[in-house]
Amino acid sequence: MTAFRRRLRDDRGAASTQLVLVVPVLLLLAMLVVQFALVWHARHIAQYAAQRALAAARAKGGTAADGRAQAGQSLAALGSQILTAPSVAVDRTTTQTTVRVHGAVMAVVPGLHLHASGTASGPTERLTTPGGERP
């Protein structure tokens, strides 16, 4: 009877079972860390593209099309694989210019679809007189 009791208390195989249960959880956690680092990076890419587009669109003689073109160039240079399917919206009025860049972030974790965006806004450049009126 003592051999049978020793066999019931035996821990052989416990490490393998623990390894099979713990490793997938650790891999998922590592993938989540990488995924959220990519989201953080994609937000910076979107913000950079929005700022570059704002500089082009708000300049005197600039247009909304100039801003969209500049954002497209910036996104192509930096984030074509990180920030996928980007959209650029440029709103230019006589006093204010706003640029919004939005896109999906490359997925590392299957089934997790995250988005990143950046916005830049500033006054539209125009000539004024010292009193603040337009010439």
Rank of each mutant, 00 (worst) to 15 (best):
residue 30 A to V: 14
residue 18 Q to V: 14
residue 58 R to Y: 08
residue 77 A to P: 09
residue 22 V to W: 03
residue 19 L to R: 03
residue 35 Q to G: 03
residue 48 Y to C: 07
residue 92 R to T: 07
residue 94 T to Y: 05
residue 114 L to V: 12
residue 41 H to P: 09
residue 100 R to N: 13
residue 127 L to G: 08
residue 2 T to I: 13
residue 125 E to W: 02
residue 78 L to W: 11
residue 48 Y to I: 12
residue 86 P to D: 04
residue 74 S to K: 01
residue 75 L to Q: 02
residue 94 T to M: 01
residue 12 R to W: 00
residue 14 A to M: 14
residue 32 L to Q: 10
residue 6 R to H: 12
residue 48 Y to M: 11
residue 118 G to A: 01
residue 107 A to I: 04
residue 126 R to I: 00
residue 57 A to W: 02
residue 106 M to P: 08
residue 38 L to V: 05
residue 88 V to C: 01
residue 89 A to E: 10
residue 103 G to S: 07
residue 1 M to S: 13
residue 36 F to S: 06
residue 53 A to W: 06
residue 129 T to R: 14
residue 102 H to G: 05
residue 96 Q to F: 01
residue 121 S to A: 15
residue 81 Q to C: 04
residue 68 R to L: 02
residue 60 K to H: 14
residue 1 M to T: 11
residue 24 P to Y: 09
residue 71 A to M: 01
residue 64 A to N: 05
residue 22 V to D: 08
residue 39 V to Y: 04
residue 80 S to W: 06
residue 89 A to K: 08
residue 19 L to C: 10
residue 124 T to C: 00
residue 3 A to S: 15
residue 25 V to Q: 08
residue 66 D to Q: 02
residue 57 A to D: 01
residue 36 F to M: 12
residue 84 T to W: 09
residue 13 G to N: 09
residue 101 V to Y: 03
residue 84 T to A: 09
residue 42 A to G: 04
residue 66 D to C: 04
residue 91 D to G: 05
residue 25 V to P: 02
residue 118 G to C: 09
residue 15 A to D: 03
residue 38 L to S: 10
residue 43 R to I: 00
residue 16 S to G: 15
residue 64 A to V: 04
residue 75 L to W: 06
residue 27 L to W: 09
residue 125 E to V: 01
residue 114 L to S: 05
residue 71 A to V: 00
residue 116 A to T: 04
residue 133 E to Y: 05
residue 27 L to I: 15
residue 61 G to Q: 11
residue 45 I to T: 13
residue 6 R to V: 08
residue 3 A to P: 05
residue 36 F to D: 06
residue 93 T to N: 05
residue 134 R to Q: 13
residue 85 A to Y: 03
residue 45 I to M: 02
residue 48 Y to L: 14
residue 100 R to E: 12
residue 22 V to T: 15
residue 13 G to I: 07
residue 130 P to D: 12
residue 98 T to N: 07
residue 121 S to V: 01
residue 91 D to A: 15
residue 133 E to K: 11
residue 90 V to C: 03
residue 52 R to V: 15
residue 108 V to D: 00
residue 52 R to I: 12
residue 61 G to A: 10
residue 99 V to R: 02
residue 94 T to K: 09
residue 31 M to I: 01
residue 133 E to C: 11
residue 129 T to F: 04
residue 4 F to L: 14
residue 114 L to Q: 06
residue 11 D to F: 10
residue 19 L to D: 01
residue 16 S to Q: 10
residue 50 A to E: 08
residue 124 T to I: 00
